[in-house]
Design a protein around this nucleic acid. Structure first.
Lengths: 191, 191
DNA sequence: CGAAAATTTGACATGACTCAACTGGAGTGG
DNA sequence: CCACTCCAGTTGAGTCATGTCAAATTTTCG
């Protein structure tokens, strides 16, 4: 099935019965996006969390001078959303945009609450998910503070070996917090 | 009771019965620390998560040149731990140290698992906790990348108005990712 | 092929770090 | 109560990392 990939991921943390699987699957909707399309625009309310079955997204904020600040690259097997907006129902400060043809499995806020209620095991799944996301993000934060741009770039390439193939260099620069020009000269020095 | 403050916090997310409260409370131990004492040292395994009832802690990593990098200041009503070490049982790369006389309510890993098992509602409490921590941390990460040191310092003071009173300036500098000297000259310019 | 966008390159400006010296307050022991 | 030491904080000079602006070059894609 389309959403097998998501069920595999869930199955790593919690065991679902056949009925639970079919109940869960009945609420999940598969949706496709083409490169450049917005899953979410700044100012809108984030109404879905999307599990990436295939493809690649970027999330970013736009500052007062109109520059994009990439906050995440999201590929297969990650959840995409602006959690804060999703949970509070307030306007999002992020945009989420496809950078490849992308297929996601998504859940609305309302359906997620239904799932928490009907299958409380999902509290555990998402607890573990956020725990891991929190830990990973903290490491990234530490790296930003103590490492130089060249070091950050190298460890970024190690953690995402597919980066050069799938992402634009100016987006990588934005993600690392440097200008595209400076990233370009960095690359030259590293050769 | 000593741990009322913790129960209040839990009660904001989930409703416990009297039996559940007394079961939970039977597993929580209160412990006190004096300034300079270590709740956790780099290299040790983090065996407890501690809820701060009163006082203040700092968590930091030490780099190869022996310099401290403060990753967090923790005050009343926050949980303190190295989650990664706590969850995986591996040696921690962080130290946690009291900077004021501090009283915490703490739980061992084993007792926490017992609680998850006996009172599954706690999955929800911690899910929401990590969600919020994740969101807050993401904002901080964005700020690090796009803001200049002076801006970070100002927004740090806004979010922690008690900072100048409770933390050393060199620790604040470390937390912001700048040298103490540079923070000093920043302050002068801001006047 | 041609236009638009991405990347590279160079000159110069600024932010932030290092090292070193100095100031001033908080113990501590006589 | 003084002299001493030990830190934290300040200040300044020189340097390196990174940003800005502008132009040249390459790539992408209709």
């Amino acid at each position: 099935m389309y959403t097998d990939r998501l069920l595999d991921n869930i199955n790593r943390q919690i065991k679902l019965t056949a009925e639970e699987i079919s109940f869960f699957s009945s609420l999940v909707k598969v949706k496709e996006w083409t490169p450049g399309e917005f899953l979410l625009k700044e100012g809108e309310v984030c109404r879905y969390i999307s599990y990436i079955l295939e493809g690649c997204l970027k999330t970013y904020q736009t500052d007062d001078v109109g520059r994009e600040h990439i906050t995440d690259f999201l590929v297969e097997d990650w959840w995409a959303d602006d959690l804060y907006s999703f949970l509070t129902g307030t306007a999002s400060t992020y945009s989420i945009r496809a950078i490849e043809p992308t297929r996601v499995a998504r859940l609305s806020n309302k359906d997620l609450e239904t799932i928490y209620k009907e299958i409380p095991k999902f509290e555990r799944y998402f607890r573990i998910l956020f725990q891991n996301a929190y830990i990973a993000q903290k490491k990234q934060l530490n790296a930003m503070l103590s490492a130089t741009a060249a070091e950050r770039y190298k460890s970024f390439l190690q953690s995402k070996p597919y980066a050069l193939r799938r992402f634009h260099q100016k987006d990588i620069a934005s993600y690392l917090g440097v200008t595209p020009q400076f990233l370009s000269t960095l690359k030259r020095k590293l050769r």
